[in-house]
Amino acid sequence: MEIAQIVGLALVTTILLLILRQEKPVMAVVLSIVFSIIVFTLMMGKMGSIINVMKELTRRAEINYFFLATILKILGVAYLGEFAATICQDAGEEAVAKKVEFASKIIIAVLALPIIIAILESLLELMPR
């Protein structure tokens, strides 16, 4: 049961963070980062299986894989941005968290651009000339 491991780890980390935040706030931030990385690493394999299922579904539905790949990249950027922003917020650095969110939004917009162009081209083909 991986969830039990994660819950246990989360409880221990929370208790340690409560203590460390008063004694050594810097160490508390480090511990928070380490916990995030551990959880992320543990979930990597599971995420891989989800992506494989999605790939298979798109292949069977004859959907261009490029679009799904872009969506998955966007999802990855969103997750990483959220992680970083949360850590920054935990450390009390709201401004940095905002910048991370801003960067994430811009990257997502850039990644979505090819899809927007493809939709526009399709719509133009549908238009009577």
């Binding site: 004859e62 799904l68 994430s104 899809i115």
Partner: peptide, 26 residues
């Protein structure tokens, strides 16, 4: 599986685009 945060609407928008192009292509 979307993350809950301020980036969520952006990702939803991208997913919407994906749905649109997937329907438009056929």
């Amino acid at each position: 599986i979307l993350p809950n945060g301020k980036i969520k609407p952006f990702v939803r928008f991208a997913i919407g685009l994906f749905i649109l192009i997937s329907i438009l292509n056929p």
